[in-house]
Nucleic acid binder design. Structure first.
Lengths: 234, 234
DNA sequence: GGCGACAAGATTGGCGACAAGTTTGTTGAC
DNA sequence: GTCAACAAACTTGTCGCCAATCTTGTCGCC
């Protein structure tokens, strides 16, 4: 009896030592989320339970729970008795996501304008000026996107609406790849930049309603560009 | 050895025969969802795993999975090693839900106006006329709400945007109770009715933008009423 | 009498083993 | 040579057991 207990304890220790610390469900979800978002695993690829269990050195039950979370977020599809595959992004679905994103970001822009002191946006008046012009001229889209995401996060932060924040998060994690493909489309970065200047100006002036309308137009335009160049994106 | 196998098979058969068919995860989720939405179990009530396992005659593991789904939908809170309780609706949270609901339903109203043939809305021009007036006069709020929900479902159906549909669904399942408490507030039913007449009229005329704006105003007004009478609602 | 500590009971968490189903590879006949 | 049927290996689905943690009740001390 005591021998068995020792065996269990030993196993636990071994596992803990072997891979540093045992990964929690949340950790694994986060890792896989990033992989899917960055297309490290391509859509349609199969996610085997045993495979993942071996990689993360955790029991299969835990992987199963992870896959449940990923499924509820709509990142993977599970077919009974056949396993889990990374969801494919249908073009129609992307359009649906963009329509929803437009109204939600519009809402957040308006709320943020109401909640934040106007000086908050000076930083972005500055950034969306000369620096971003230079990024566009140099085709430095990485720097371009970094600034965008910073703006996005700041808006959500000041909107102070966790419900909207959660929903937008689930949209971003599905469309991250698409966003990167849209900005490199001809003329889109420049166009998006001037649209954002208008948004930020309205926010700085404290005009939430206008900022909302402009933000929605901005995303409708992005969607329209996507529609025109869909052959090159998906 | 073979005796053990027989035991297991016998048990399975017994379970299958005893309770008809074994409930699937989805079935149990649906049942609990309704209970929570209808306040059959009050917020703050504890949901014991063994208790539920006994009630539905399924292994505890399945209940665990069910609780996982309910948690990801935000219907329950799980405290490690202490169990699951039905989430309380904070007033602030309700306001956040209403802001998001306003823009999402606004979107759906606009899309539905664009997608559906105008005659689609004749049914509701009719219903929102004399019949609903009568319901308000008689304080028949149940009939009143039935018509509203029919309208809501029709809008979502014609909006043809599964993303928005899903998000609105998760909002409704949390605010169902609140909706019922708002319509009985003094004057709110009558006010809401006239607002809806305007919405339907715009939809019938094919003016999606106006319909969207009116729908958003409608929900902002509902929220405002809720704010004024918050003491009596929560 | 009240408060703190300890032990017993109960509940949740984690895991490995077994069962069911699917895919793949092989063998046989047409 | 091709197709179908069967078998074996592998993958997913289900379940019950054991460990960890919290709750509760009791006892002893201040």
């Amino acid at each position: 009896m005591s021998g068995r207990v020792v065996t269990l304890k030993t196993k636990a220790k071994l596992r803990a030592r072997k891979s540093g610390t045992a990964s929690s469900v949340q950790d694994i979800v986060q890792t896989l989320r990033e992989r899917i978002a960055r297309h490290d695993v391509s859509p349609g690829a199969k996610l085997g339970e045993q495979e993942l269990a071996a990689e993360f050195a955790v029991p299969r039950t835990r992987i199963r729970e992870v896959l449940g979370v990923l499924e509820s977020r709509g990142l993977i599809d599970r077919i009974p008795n056949r396993g889990a595959v990374v969801s494919r992004l249908e073009l129609d679905h992307v359009f649906h996501l963009y329509d929803v994103r437009a109204v939600l970001e519009g809402l957040c822009v308006r709320l943020a304008t109401e909640n934040a002191p106007p000086e908050t946006w000076d930083e972005f008046v500055e950034l969306f000026g000369a620096p971003m012009d230079e990024f566009v001229a140099n085709r430095d889209f990485d720097a371009f996107i970094v600034v965008y995401e910073r703006f996005r996060r700041r808006i959500i932060e000041w909107a102070r609406n966790p419900v909207a924040a959660r929903m937008l998060d689930s949209i971003y994690e599905k469309t991250n790849v698409v966003i990167r493909r849209i900005v490199i489309l001809p003329g889109r970065a420049k166009e998006g930049l001037s649209e954002h200047r208008a948004v930020v100006a309205a926010m700085r002036a404290g005009d939430g309603e206008t900022a909302e309308r402009l933000k929605r137009m901005n995303l409708q335009n992005a969607k329209e560009t996507l529609r025109r160049f869909q052959k090159y994106v998906l």
